[in-house]
């Protein structure tokens, strides 16, 4: 799949934002005064900038409100609802932390659950696509949630954040391992795509069109194996190993900031791979999957 920068930014930033909001909401970090203003602001900023980036991916954003209508069937619509509900329900909690209004924490806990639900709905948008076997795995939502929780743990300075960072690495390794065999496991070939397997073994004789088209640009992105391997190593080092290490050192707030930035860079690399390496079965018609 085409690794569109808007979608990569959206899912990474909003995942981190909602993860952090979950920790703030649940009261695992309770800031007060101006610290509360800046920390809640960071959470909202990340979540909102992600959602904003997502609208850049739309061809026709003027209809965006209509995306709330199909929550019964569409995960994208459910995501729209979950994200707005989270941001609305957590707003009074944020205000209460900032101004010391003493609102009951239970509202924050509900908001925290909604925040994680939002991340889950984001993940399901990809997981539901049967035509992309690499995405249709239980590990896909697990990966999205692990990133959100680990990122939230890091930003809220939890003692176990280094462990969470290591969990991110573990999930990535498992996801890649399973994902690399997923297309073969779905056992779709040019033969089943055309039905010509009942006749023999087809190969492309002539392309259907000599120039590119939407399908090829959007769905048939091929990354070099060597290139992907390097990026995987980079993603593991940046998103998992280095932040875990830095968090274990007594570096205080600057250390935390550096760890967070490295983690975000690694998360972006991993998300780029999540799209770029995903093979859509439509590639079979173009002979791009052999």
């Amino acid at each position: 799949m085409h690794p569109a920068p808007s979608v990569i930014l959206f899912s990474t930033l909003s995942g981190l934002g909602f993860g952090f909001l979950a920790f703030l909401g649940a009261g695992l970090l309770i800031p007060s005064g101006w610290a509360a203003f800046f920390l809640w602001g960071l959470g909202y900023g990340l979540a909102l900038s992600g959602l904003l980036a997502a609208t850049f991916h739309l061809g026709n954003p003027k209809n965006a409100l209509k995306a709330f209508s199909q929550w019964r069937t569409s995960w994208l619509s459910r995501e729209a609802w979950a994200s707005v509900a989270t941001l609305l329900i957590l707003a009074p909690v944020a205000l209460s932390d900032w101004l010391g209004l003493g609102l009951p924490r239970i509202i924050g806990v509900v908001g925290a659950m909604l925040a994680l639900l939002t991340v889950f709905t984001t993940a399901m948008i990809y997981t539901q696509i049967k035509a992309v076997p690499r995405w249709q795995q239980t590990l896909t939502p697990v990966m999205f949630l692990t990133f959100a929780i680990a990122g939230g743990a890091l930003l809220s300075g939890q003692a176990w954040a280094p462990l969470a960072m290591l969990a991110v690495g573990g999930i990535l390794l498992a996801l890649w391992r399973q994902g690399d065999g997923a297309f073969a496991k779905a056992s779709q070939t040019m033969g089943t795509a055309t039905g010509l397997d009942r006749l023999g073994t087809p190969t492309v004789f002539e392309p259907a069109h000599t120039a590119g088209n939407y399908l090829m640009r959007e769905m048939i992105h091929v990354v070099g194996r060597k290139h992907a391997k390097k990026l995987r190593v980079l993603a593991l080092i940046l998103a998992s190993a280095m932040p875990a290490l830095i968090l274990l050192l007594p570096l205080g707030l600057p250390g935390l900031a550096v760890a967070a930035l490295l983690h975000l860079a690694g998360a972006l690399a991993a998300r780029w791979l999540f799209f770029a390496e995903a093979e859509h079965v439509v590639g079979l018609y173009y002979g791009a999957r052999d």
């Binding site: 799949m1 991916h57 739309l58 061809g59 026709n60 954003p61 209809n63 965006a64 209509k66 995306a67 994208l76 948008i125 539901q128 696509i129 049967k130 035509a131 992309v132 779709q188 795509a193 088209n213 939407y214 399908l215 959007e218 769905m219 859509h280 079965v281 439509v282 018609y285």
Partner: peptide, 28 residues
């Protein structure tokens, strides 16, 4: 087309490549 936001998700969901986004109009 009047309700489409051009998110492209339907084209992803189709295994057969039967949907193409119109690059000028931004709708499916």
């Amino acid at each position: 087309e009047d309700a489409c936001i051009g998110c492209g998700l339907c084209a992803w969901a189709c295994p057969y490549g039967a949907r193409e986004m119109d690059a000028d109009q931004g709708v499916m």
